[in-house]
């Protein structure tokens, strides 16, 4: 039986789609069967980030309305064994999908795939409700900005209200130099407010923009530091205990992170 993970944020543009593409690819690279679902109806772009846009025939709403079989709509990623994408329609209304239909779809996919990763749209409306409906687990993505953290907090409250317990946090686009200068919220500050477990810290990395444009997730690029962060999150999802990357090359950060997670300094 597979596991459904929804990638949410509240605030737009903080990296949900980037995270979905990289974690999905990362998990597939570990030999698991993965389906990525884009629930951002009308503003789909997971297919673009994955470089699979030109292969779309059917989409999520076609499956839900019974216009095609589930298998027909799943796009197989030829580069990564075991990776599939269920794209969002570009021209339909958000209300074309209801939460109970997403629950059914997730149940169906869980029978055959190890992980179903759902890219949630920004906001807290219908699209959000659909995206979380079938989820077993949620990751909340935020950037180290006050407004993004505020929205993440709202989302955590809504997830809890919807019985999705213990969401985990991904802090994206961290710039250690700015944190050091006191110009950016630190991971500690963010966790202090959100009070949830951390599953990953992803640095701000221009490789992400390059890889996004090419449609090749950075997780597969051994030279990308963001790619390394995504590989670490992947291993944590699979149950490994991976220490956090030392982003600013000083013991302070790592020691703090260890303290945060109760790991005794070596």
């Amino acid at each position: 039986m597979g596991e459904v993970i929804v990638i949410t944020s509240g605030k737009g543009g903080v990296g949900k789609t980037t995270t979905t593409a990289n974690l999905g690819t990362g998990i597939a690279l570990q030999g698991k069967k993965v389906v990525l679902i884009d629930t951002d109806i009308g503003l789909r772009n997971l297919d673009v980030v994955m470089g699979l846009e030109n292969r779309i025939v059917y989409d999520l709403v076609d499956v839900i309305e019974g216009q095609c079989r589930l298998k027909q709509a799943l796009i197989k990623d030829k580069r990564f064994e075991g990776l599939y994408l269920l794209p969002a329609p570009q021209t339909r209304d958000k209300n074309a999908v209801a939460p109970h239909q997403m629950v059914d779809l997730c149940e169906e996919l869980k029978k055959e795939y190890d992980y179903i990763i759902i890219d949630c749209p920004a906001g807290i409306e219908q699209g959000f409700k659909n995206a979380i409906a079938g989820a077993d687990r949620a990751f909340v993505v935020t950037t180290p900005e006050v407004s993004a953290v505020r929205d993440a907090d709202r989302i955590i409250g809504l997830l809890e209200a919807n019985e999705i317990r213990n969401p985990q946090l991904i802090v994206n686009r961290v710039r250690p130099d700015m944190v050091k200068r006191g110009d950016m919220m630190s991971i500690e500050d963010i966790i202090d407010i959100l009070a949830i477990g951390l599953i990953g810290v992803v640095p701000d990395d221009e490789n992400i923009i390059i890889s996004t444009n090419r449609g090749e997730p950075a997780v597969n690029d051994s030279k990308s530091i963001a790619g390394q962060a995504y590989r670490n999150i992947t291993r944590r999802i699979l149950g490994e205990d991976v220490p956090f990357i030392n982003l600013n090359n000083s013991d302070g950060f790592l020691a703090k992170m260890k303290k945060l997670f109760g790991i005794k300094p070596a």
Partner: peptide, 21 residues
Amino acid sequence: RSGTRIEFDGSVVVIGDVNPG
């Protein structure tokens, strides 16, 4: 959390934080 409003006719004790919003 942000977006939550608790109204009560009486006193309120929160065992936890009250976040911005």
